[in-house]
Nucleic acid binder design. Sequence first.
DNA 1: AAAATTATGAGATGCGCGTATCATAAAGAT
DNA 2: ATCTTTATGATACGCGCATCTCATAATTTT
Lengths: 213, 213
Amino acid sequence: MDVSRQQNESAARAERGPRARTRKLMLETATRLMQSGITPSVSEVAEAAEVSRATAYRYFPSQAALVHAVVDEALGPILDWRSEAPDALTRVADLLATAMPRIDEFEATFKAALKLSLDQWAQRQAGTLGNEPQLTRGHRVELLRQVTVPLEGKLSTEAREQLAQALSLVFGVEVLVVLKDIWGLSAERAQSVAEWAAAALVEAAIREGQTAA
Amino acid sequence: MDVSRQQNESAARAERGPRARTRKLMLETATRLMQSGITPSVSEVAEAAEVSRATAYRYFPSQAALVHAVVDEALGPILDWRSEAPDALTRVADLLATAMPRIDEFEATFKAALKLSLDQWAQRQAGTLGNEPQLTRGHRVELLRQVTVPLEGKLSTEAREQLAQALSLVFGVEVLVVLKDIWGLSAERAQSVAEWAAAALVEAAIREGQTAA
DNA sequence: AAAATTATGAGATGCGCGTATCATAAAGAT
DNA sequence: ATCTTTATGATACGCGCATCTCATAATTTT
């Protein structure tokens, strides 16, 4: 059974009434707390939203479920991104321009999601996998395949796939973690570096495709 | 006060005797547990090493301190890496060939370290910063500056710095997280993608330096 | 060998998260 | 208006981590 599916259904089923109100209240509270840097426990959200712990746990049975819901909100425009640009270079620049500021804006949320996915990986390794919501973290694949569509004739399928994979290294929260936290760059500089790297990768792939053909 | 410094001093001060033996035993046990995928709590290490919890906490006052010590071990050959190769392309390939297999081998350990650094970032944001060991996570900077040394005359200082920053995106645990966990690649494929991307970045930087000059 | 120092273990305590129970309050149906 | 259903809150419980205390064992010093 897919838990997130269940949550979506129940949310859709009761878009008004007390259920929806309380859920929305909690989600807003959780988002606000996360924006302020905290990765709140369910109890903390309960207190901040002024509902009882018991009620809070009815809506979000774990911190993972909570973060999952907030991430879904935060992704928002990123998931809707499409590009009709004819060349991959423009598409990737466009994607980064859309996604990176959003990711930076919700930095704490995405870092919390990354942290949870690491948790789940570890638990999977240890065999101790609970019935947690199973963070998605795969949107990158779809988005970057979109980016490489204009190269369909010019590159082999393998080369396109490899380009998409390489691009996924310069696009996401991980980029912020490395460039801001380790190098101490500003968000603007970080984005600029990511854009430069992305362009370099696309051009390299195209160049190789030409020499091969 | 730098806690890791204190630990190093006490370890150096008592390289033999029961202190050193127990510490070594715990470290080996912790490493073994981490290799098996668990990110053990201090209590778990205590049990596995067959010492009492109280003793364990005397050596490693927190899980963070424990992971920090294990990471130091795991880094091992990576920290000693040097390259005398005359060109940056060879150097970066050499660095990846040395470091990535090691990182993959100790994947669980490095992921645990990444998780802790995210924890600490969140706590910093929230103002709740304990006296934790403060994970380093900055070795990348030094290593990659080494890589770009051969470009000293050919590129501007800014361009070299940007290259090093871009390279840091294709080198580290994050690469494994993205390519193995999200894309489902094997360790070998992941390394191959990282190597391709790194080479592409270096070549792009060189090309731009030439046109600029 | 005796005394002083130091390391260890067993247990108690506090704290936070997640779960379960049960009574009350609110909303909806007849 | 009454009854049924559903949501909520207060409380208590179990569990694991981290800390503290104190007695015992091991090691070092004299």
